[in-house]
């Protein structure tokens, strides 16, 4: 068991699922509020965004219609383009090194894997957090399901200390998003900020 844990996050999730009988825990989930973690080390600026599905696409149930699927696909595309979401100051000289986005479903997942009765070629081996397969269980999963968009960005900045103020076009792109709880970690420590729809800027000036 322990060795499994040392593996990647996906593997850990898999392990949780396998233990579904004796481990019951769920993350907190608040609609309207997402979390943005920013870590700065040297010239690397890593960002990790976790937002409830309701904030991004307006629903959290498994995609049922083609519109649902289209909305999710579009959201994932938008979330994969950090330059559209967050305005980093030019002085910092940041370039995007990597950007990924996916959709994680919590609560319904236990059902899926336990029953294991959904068919298909793309079923078990990747234990995906995507939208696949869930429609089979839409009825039983509904109500218990929460989904969360999860995106990771890595920037390489020539002068991260020049980051100054970050602007959040994010709020213009996603109508349901009201607030982002931001945590910033540098070599000197951690600090928390709150960025809201009404005040969509983050001032990092005090950090450096």
């Amino acid at each position: 068991m322990k060795s499994t844990l040392a593996l990647t996050a996906a593997a850990a999730l898999l392990a949780t699922t396998a233990l579904a009988e004796d481990t019951r825990q769920l993350d907190a989930h608040e609609h309207g509020t997402g979390a943005l973690d920013i870590a700065i080390d040297g010239t690397t600026v890593a960002m990790e965004l976790r937002v409830p599905g309701a904030d991004i696409v307006g629903f959290e149930h498994a995609a049922e219609s083609d519109e649902d699927r289209a909305a999710i696909a579009e959201a994932l595309t938008t979330l994969s383009t950090p330059t559209d979401l967050f305005g980093l100051s030019d002085a910092a000289g940041c370039t995007v090194e990597a950007a990924t986005a996916d959709l994680e479903t919590e609560g319904a997942e236990d059902h899926d894997h336990d029953h294991g009765d959904h068919t298909e070629e793309h079923g078990h081996d990747d234990h995906g957090h995507d939208d696949h397969g869930h429609e089979d269980h839409a009825e039983e999963a509904e109500g218990a399901t929460h989904s969360e968009f999860h995106a990771e960005y890595t920037h390489d900045c020539t002068a991260p200390e020049e980051l100054g103020t970050i602007t959040f076009a994010y709020f213009d792109l996603f109508e349901g998003a009201q607030e982002l709880e931001v945590q910033v970690v540098t070599g000197d420590g951690a600090q928390a900020f709150e960025v809201t729809r009404d005040a969509p800027t983050l001032d990092l000036g005090g950090l450096f």
């Binding site: 996050a9 973690d37 870590a39 080390d41 890593a46 970690v185 540098t186 070599g187």
Partner: peptide, 8 residues
């Protein structure tokens, strides 16, 4: 090891 790993 690195601030980048703090959140993980």
């Amino acid at each position: 090891e690195s601030p980048l790993q703090t959140f993980a």
